[in-house]
């Protein structure tokens, strides 16, 4: 992105990103044994915290807000919501 003369309100110097991972009180944890790789969790995740990598769906935690939609929508109940901080 090129540098601009800021004579009017515009933004292009980097990306405005919030640390939304800190919002989480519970984290989704995937039970790989139950997972059938249907991908519904990815389609419904509002923050795109679920990725498809090496033919597997994986949960990333950098921006996951812990809403729990993935756990509710998983047809095989392969995702559990686990309290943050207290460990597993």
């Amino acid at each position: 992105m090129s540098k601009r003369v800021h004579i009017s309100p515009l933004a292009n110097e980097g990306m405005y990103i919030l640390d939304t991972a800190s919002w989480r009180t519970e984290r989704p944890v995937m039970n790989k044994e139950k997972c059938i790789e249907c991908g519904l969790c990815l389609t419904y995740c509002p923050v795109n915290a679920i990725i498809f990598d090496e033919n597997k769906y994986k949960i990333t935690y950098n921006y996951c807000k812990g809403c729990g939609i993935c756990a509710v929508e998983c047809p095989k109940k392969a995702i559990d919501m686990v309290p943050e901080g207290g460990g597993k």
């Binding site: 992105m1 090129s2 601009r4 003369v5 800021h6 004579i7 009017s8 309100p9 515009l10 933004a11 292009n12 405005y16």
Partner: peptide
């Protein structure tokens, strides 16, 4: 003029939220 242009080849946010100091 090119100080505030919506262009996919050179993406920018025109009129982003702005703090008082910058405003």
């Amino acid at each position: 003029f090119n100080h505030a242009i919506l262009d996919p080849d050179n993406p920018m946010a025109v009129d982003s939220l702005t703090s008082g100091e910058v405003l």
